[in-house]
Design a protein around this nucleic acid. Structure first.
Length: 1171
RNA sequence: GGGCGUAUAGCUCAGUUGGUUUAGAGCGCAUCCCUGAUAAGGAUGAAGUCCGAGGUUCGAAUCCUCGUACGCCCA
């Protein structure tokens, strides 16, 4: 006996009890244990930060992260799911600052780094409870209690190990990074912060002369206007434009676009000529209100290498003539030269761009590129005339101590006085200001920073990327590939407080540096000292997490003896690292590799990942950091390449480093790593299609969705509504709609089954002896009364065929990580099950006596439901479990598997799939649908029986089979007879269409003529010709053409005068003629319907019996009552049927086909539902 | 400014390597049916300049080019 199924189900309620069941019975753990020996399917959890509340976007990632591991587990893999928490970084510091009501680094330091760090640790797990609740509520199975945590000592030490490896191989180096700098606050701002602070302002815009230096008697311009003598350089200036005059003292280069045309122009009334982009001459003439006459033209590349005198000579006076050795041999002036750059445009300015590498990222790249050309230490140094507080240094005595922006005016004045200023104006543009001090403009400014030499591994990263399976594909060569192509070295360090400390100690005397791979290694250093800072803190506050001892400020206090200078100490550099490095290190750091015991084995067993998934914003985040770190650490072959201080010891296997040998580096053939398949999720949008925003209130909190509709509804919405990589509109309506569309539809089938199985006493547990286990088809086949599928009726064979082809298709799609397509197949199947199988089988379940046919129906539907449970289990785990529990555990008790999630996933059995039957049934369904359409058109209710329906088939292949199924069609369409024909010229016109796929390649340009000809021809005649001769001969304007049967397709078109509907494969024509007999039968059905309505309004059970009196003046109705008495009684479960009034209750008066009829209906007894 | 993506019915989205004057589905809407899955279920219908403009081709929603709009990432 199955538990009765509530007709009005509350999914949220049901899910709660299922969640409890899983928890109490430890089903997740059991699902892992069941696969203990199975091959691994490796999943990595990208760590979220738990210092904020989870939002709908997290639900999507968590749902997808749950779907595939569940699926793979059912498919026979062991999929460990270790959670993770990202705990470091600026977002945490920002949250704490908000809480403390402070902003700047100065304020943090005034507050105290130590208490600040304590606040950070507290904040990191503020919302852990909410995250855990959401995780469980969503049905996301993952081990959160064993999650890796990026601030834990073991994790940090793993990161240190990686960094030491990179450092020892020369891949970690110090350089400059140009940052957006808040000078007054002394801090760099993140991109997000900068983005918030843009405002339109007016800045001075200056056009400055850079006089060219004559190079002895070197030849001058190659391209000369005809008839002009070669021009001398000494009377010519580059015209350079900038909106930041204060950067001019730090000028190092002038950039031109090599392929752009430039003009030498003579200025009215001035002795010196100017060079500027030809395209801009007119514009500049207009601005400056000066007459500019083009003297000659040249292309940018001809300017490259020419030297000039910068407007300020603070540096030029000492270094202006300095040359350095080039790597390619020869010498070159180190600065104040024209260089080539692609970023130069003619949108504004002069086409010649002033380069102050200290104050612009692009400019800095130019400097780096120049430095690359010279042998080491021979290249140009970085010139920076500005102190970190934003004032000029002593190197620029006239302006020393002045805030740079404020000096702009004087700088311009000075240039004007010296004749260097050609033109000046105001320029309106967007410029960033500090978001917390609105009056303070930001400046770009160089900071010392640590970099990872990722550029050296570009090709290896690309090779690795090429073998990753990206969903969607375009990420590979698109967003991610492009990003790798334009790779720049990873700026690793952060001048912040809460993060993994950079494990590099520097000798205070010599500058010698060492990287350290773990705390123990540090403790073993000679003369180590400073641990008391931590000890005292811990004493004062014993609750402090021990993991903090490896963080700022405690770790900064630890110093040791320098090996290079007696008496000197090694002190840690002050920086922490980018928290992306933390998360990217998780493949090994989650195990504490290599310092933790057993980490080597765990890492080896769980590397690389088979599957990861995050949203698209992680492309440059986690997806990159994983790939970069893995490629840098594990792709090196042998000791061939790498850095300058590489050697066997530096590989991290030498004495004292504590690094065990490991099966890495990987050979290149082991790509891809560290992940093979990556599902990139789209962005989640709010109800209105815009960005989700708390203040706009354009989305519902996940918990509200769970309470109203349930987790399965949300999950199914994510999986089935769109491919996961498109942007997803998080719409409450759509989430709600999944319930009737899919969940309820399946639920109704399930409920239908349970109702009748209980009435009829269908008892699979009694028919199956011994273990029922996972109740797969093999087990079912052992049941008493279970007939082999081949013996069963067609409908049963059909639905089982559909079931198995669905399973096959779902597996195929899920193996491709295409959950959307998989869901499409599941929807189709559930629809077929509900709207064809159950509908067509209802009578079999209703019939009173026990028959083989009825038993077959039960076993068939039972099997469909069991398999459906399993098929939907990874998608909607709660519903699947609920159904499983009732369909199996309630019946079999301990003989059945305890949970659907311990089952194997149905892969579909080939021998049950009957494609022909499936195709044929589709034709029947089409005929029925067309018949209804024809009825609709003729305004003939389905209730009204008709004498005949004629089906004209375009293709006779299924004719014989269809004829055998005439009864089914008659029943569905309520007609007495169905006939199949192929030629029915009275109803149909025929059009012969060319098969373009075949004829296109054959006929090419002749095709349009043929199409025209066929369009005008009499299709019937052509078909007759084809039937007679096996071919059609046609005369095209340019010659004859012969068509055979395969070359054409036939379209049928119903003639207008008939009640007909046409489909792709056939036309259905109704006979609309009504005899008295048919009308009477129709009336009988009207009566039945009226009585059923009353049954319903009386809340009758479907087992209740009635006594009915029908009173009417209509002779017609009376006649029908007599004639169809038995029919009406059986249909309405009426035991007594009279044509006289009953004493009670009040009659119900209804119009039946235009006749007034009074119904007296008594419920005379309830038959108990029994089994 | 650059890269990537998206644009198909009122809404949310499909549309396989180019193939047929019938471009699909769900929701919503309209009309209707069923009433023994019943506070459900089903059918039918209306509704589309496939973003625009060019091009390639016998043939383009699909391929190419150029635009436009929106989104994301970067500058």
């Amino acid at each position: 006996m199955f538990n009765p199924v509530e007709s009005s189900v509350s999914f949220p309620k049901l899910e709660e009890s299922i969640a409890r069941f899983w928890r109490q019975r430890q089903i997740y753990e059991k699902s892992l244990a069941a696969r203990a020996e199975a091959p691994a399917f490796v999943f990595y959890d990208g760590p979220p930060t738990a210092n904020g509340l989870p939002h709908p976007g997290h639900c999507l990632t968590r749902a997808i992260k749950d779907l595939f591991p569940r699926y793979k587990t059912m498919r026979g893999y062991r999929c460990d799911r270790k959670g993770g928490w990202d705990t470091h970084g600026l977002p945490v510091e920002v949250e704490v600052c908000k809480e403390l009501g402070i902003h700047s680094k100065e304020e943090i330091e005034a507050y105290g780094i130590e208490p600040f760090i304590h606040k950070c640790v507290e904040s990191v797990f503020r919302y852990t409870k909410e995250w855990e609740e959401l995780t469980e509520r969503l049905g996301f199975w993952i081990h959160l209690d064993e999650a890796y945590v990026t601030f834990h000592q073991s994790y940090v030490e793993s990161v240190w190990w990686a960094l030491k490896n990179l450092f020892d191989r020369g891949l970690l180096y110090q350089g400059h990074k140009i940052v957006w700098w808040w000078a007054q606050g002394g801090t760099a701002l993140s991109a997000g912060e900068v983005g918030q602070g843009y405002r339109e302002v007016a800045d001075p815009s200056v056009y400055v002369r850079f006089p060219l230096v004559e190079e002895g008697d070197s030849p001058i311009f190659a391209t000369q206007k005809s008839g002009q003598s070669p021009m001398q350089m000494h009377d010519t200036d580059l015209l350079v434009w900038t909106t930041t005059p204060w950067t001019l003292p730090s000028n190092q280069f002038a950039a031109v676009k090599p392929e752009l045309e430039y003009s030498v122009v003579a200025v009215e009334g001035e002795s010196r000529n100017l060079i500027m982009a030809s395209a801009l001459v007119e514009k500049i003439a207009a601005k400056s209100k000066k007459d500019l006459a083009v003297v000659s033209t040249l292309i940018g590349s001809e300017l490259v290498g020419r030297r000039y005198v910068p407007p300020f000579d603070y540096y030029y006076k000492t270094d202006g003539r300095r040359q350095g050795k080039l790597k390619t041999g020869g010498r070159e002036h180190i600065a104040w030269r024209v260089v080539a750059a692609d970023f130069v445009t003619t949108d504004s300015g002069t086409g010649i761009v002033h380069q102050a590498p200290a104050f612009g990222e692009v400019d800095y790249d130019v400097l780096t590129a120049e430095q690359e050309r010279f042998v080491e230490d021979n290249g140009p140094p970085l010139i920076c005339s500005v102190a970190p507080d934003g004032t000029f240094t002593a190197e620029t005595p006239e302006f020393q101590g002045r805030w740079v922006k404020e000096a702009d005016g004087d700088i311009a004045r000075q240039m004007r006085a010296e004749g260097a200023l050609f033109h000046q104006e105001q320029y309106l543009h967007d410029y960033p200001f500090c978001w917390r001090a609105e009056e303070d403009p930001l400046i770009q400014y160089p900071r010392r920073s640590w970099f990872i030499r990722t550029t050296q591994f570009k090709d290896k990263m690309l090779a690795n990327n090429a073998l990753i399976n990206w969903l969607p594909e375009h990420i590979q060569d698109g967003r991610f590939g492009n990003f790798l192509e334009t790779n720049v070295d990873w700026a690793l360090s952060r001048e912040r407080y809460w993060g993994t400390p950079l494990p590099i100690w520097v000798c205070e005397k010599t500058g010698y540096m060492e990287a350290v791979c773990c705390y123990d290694e540090l403790m073993a250093k000679p003369g180590v000292d400073g641990m008391e800072v931590w000890r005292e803190a811990k004493q004062k506050n014993p609750d402090l997490s021990d993991d903090l001892k490896i963080h700022k400020p405690y770790i900064d206090a630890v110093t040791y003896d320098s090996p290079k200078a007696p008496g000197a100490r090694m002190r840690r550099v002050s920086e922490v690292i980018d928290c992306w490095f933390d998360s990217g290190a998780m493949p090994f750091a989650q195990w504490g590799y290599p310092n933790q015991e057993g980490s080597k084995e765990r890492f080896a067993a769980q590397f690389p990942a088979d599957f990861i998934s995050e949203a698209i914003d992680q492309t440059r985040g986690w997806f990159y950091s994983l790939l970069a770190i893995s490629t840098l650490l594990f792709s090196e072959e042998g000791t061939g390449e790498g850095g300058r201080n590489q050697g066997p010891e530096a590989r991290g296997q030498g004495p004292g480093t504590g690094n065990p040998p490991f099966p890495f580096p990987l050979p290149p053939s082991s790509y891809p790593h560290p992940y093979r398949n990556c599902v990139v999720l789209g962005l989640m949008l709010g109800e209105d299609g815009g960005k989700m925003s708390k203040s706009k209130r354009n989305y519902r909190e996940p918990n509200e969705i769970f309470d109203r509709y349930g987790a399965d509804a949300l999950r199914w919405f994510f999986f089935a509504n769109q491919p996961p990589w498109t942007s997803i509109r998080y719409s409450e309506q759509s989430i709600k709609a999944t319930i009737p569309e899919f969940l309820i539809k399946l639920w109704n089938v399930y409920s239908f089954f349970v109702i009748y199985a209980n009435i009829d006493g269908f008892d699979p547990a009694a028919s199956i002896s011994g273990k029922a286990g996972r109740l797969d088809s093999k087990v079912l086949a052992t049941a008493d009364g279970y007939r082999s599928i081949l013996e069963r009726g067609e409908l049963d064979r059909w639905v089982l065929s559909e079931l198995n082809s669905t399973a096959t298709a779902v597996v195929q799609r899920m193996d491709r990580y295409d959950n959307y397509a998989a869901c499409g197949r599941l929807i189709e199947f559930v629809d077929a099950l509900s709207n064809w199988y159950v509908r067509r089988s209802r009578e079999r379940f209703w019939s009173g006596e026990k028959s083989t046919d009825k038993t077959d129906a039960y076993w068939t539907l039972y099997e469909c439901l069991l398999s459906s449970c399993k098929l939907i289990a990874p998608f909607v785990p709660f519903l699947a479990e609920e159904m499983w529990q009732n369909l199996t555990v309630a019946e079999f008790g301990g003989r059945a598997v305890e949970s659907v999630h311990l089952c194997d996933y149905p892969a579909g059995e080939k021998n049950v799939i009957d494609r022909l039957l499936s195709e044929r049934m589709a034709v029947v369904r089409e005929i029925v649908s067309l018949g209804r359409s024809a009825r609709m058109g003729a305004k003939l209710k389905v209730r009204q029986p008709l004498a005949l329906v004629e089906v004209v088939l375009a293709d006779p292949v299924h004719k014989g089979w269809l004829e055998e199924h005439a009864a089914l069609i008659c029943d569905e369409l309520n007609v007495k007879q169905v006939e199949f024909t192929q030629r029915a010229d009275q109803y149909i016109t025929y059009t012969v269409l060319p098969d373009l796929k075949r004829l296109g390649p054959r006929l090419g340009k002749r095709l349009p003529a043929l199409r025209k000809l066929l369009g005008q021809a009499d299709g019937g005649k052509l078909l007759a010709e084809l039937e007679e001769n096996g071919k059609i001969e046609l005369e095209l304007p340019d010659g004859p053409v012969t068509l055979v049967a395969d070359d054409i397709q036939i379209r049928l078109q119903a003639k207008e005068s008939w009640a007909a509907a046409q489909g792709k494969q056939c036309v259905v024509v109704l006979s609309t003629e009504l005899t008295d007999e048919l009308i009477a039968e129709g009336l009988a059905r009207e009566l039945v319907r009226a009585i059923q309505d009353i049954r319903k309004s009386r809340n009758c059970l479907y087992t209740d019996r009635l006594k009915v009196g029908v009173v009417t003046d209509s002779k017609e109705i009376q006649l029908v009552m007599n004639q169809f008495e038995e029919y009406i009684k059986s249909q309405t479960l009426t035991l007594e049927f009279t044509s006289t009034p009953l004493p009670e209750p009040e009659p119900v008066e209804v119009t039946v086909a235009g006749h007034r009829v009074k119904f007296y209906v008594n419920v005379i007894f309830h038959r108990e539902v029994s089994n």
